[in-house]
């Protein structure tokens, strides 16, 4: 299958290893990955911070860039959530119904990685090997906006050598929330402290998730604690082989 990669601005700039892993994994499974030029950012930060007007050109750009493709994947539950639940809404609110329709059409063909693998490519065992103790944090937007359910866990359970341990209070938000982490830094930090406590309780050496943004937050905290626990994007574990 020919799959267009929406890399997301954060993975592109700060976590290219997550995006590379997505490409290498899909290619290993026999698919062709293309990278539509001209893509930048989905506009979620602007929308969620209260700048819908400024987000509008970014939505237009995103729709124009991905319209020609039948299947689009992004290694981020949050950005796919924005594409699926916000783009058309913001376009409508601005009175641009044509853009809203086009955005809806693109959204219907856009998948988060675990959705693409399980729902579209119908594969649960991607042939990965990762001999480490891992705990999975279900990010809020994967869980409650996209409703990916246990899809990421089903993929992880099929990884050879993995010691997958359940994260206590897994469904509690890690406290990232985009600009929430800056505007309400103290509350965000209190939420992070509890999340890190739970991660450390598991004894895992790796904490994984489907969103580079939440991982940047959790990983930043774990690094400050010098805890020795690494954060890795789900794609990086699924791309790993012996």
């Amino acid at each position: 299958m020919r799959i267009a990669l929406f890399v997301t601005c954060l993975a592109d700039t700060m976590f290219p290893q997550a995006a590379k892993a997505t490409v290498l994994l899909l290619e290993r499974l026999g698919h062709e990955v293309v990278f539509p030029p001209g893509q930048t950012c989905c506009g979620q930060m602007h929308i969620n911070t209260g700048y819908q007007q400024q987000a509008l050109p970014l939505i237009q750009r995103h729709v124009k860039t991905f319209q020609p493709y039948d299947v689009v994947v992004a290694p981020s539950g949050s950005c796919v959530g924005s594409v699926r639940h916000q783009h058309a809404m913001v376009a409508s609110a601005a009175g641009d119904e044509r853009l809203a329709l086009r955005a809806t059409a693109v959204a219907e063909r856009t998948y988060e990685l675990s959705e693409l693998l399980i729902d579209v490519l119908k594969i649960e065992d991607v042939g990965a090997y990762f001999p480490h103790r891992v705990t999975y944090h279900p990010t809020c937007h994967s869980l409650r906006v996209l409703r990916v359910g246990d899809k990421p866990l089903r993929l992880l359970r099929n990884v050879r050598g993995i010691d997958l341990v359940e994260l206590p209070a897994a469904e509690q938000c890690c406290g990232f929330g985009g600009t929430f982490a800056l505007k309400n830094a103290d509350t965000s930090t209190a939420m992070l402290a509890d999340k890190m406590g739970h991660v450390l309780e598991t004894g895992a050496s790796v904490c994984t998730a489907g969103d580079a943004s939440c991982l940047m937050h959790i990983g930043g905290g774990l690094s400050r604690l010098e805890s020795g626990v690494r954060t890795l994007h789900l794609a990086e574990i699924l791309a790993a082989t012996s």
């Binding site: 700039t13 290219p16 995006a19 800056l182 830094a185 940047m216 400050r224």
Partner: peptide
């Protein structure tokens, strides 16, 4: 500020040697 809110409790990641699009 406003990034001090971040770095008070969290490290920022080391910027990667190349961006994804450079690699691509």
């Amino acid at each position: 500020p406003p990034l001090s809110g971040w770095t008070a409790s969290r490290d920022l990641p080391e910027p990667p040697a190349e961006t994804f699009r450079d690699w691509w």
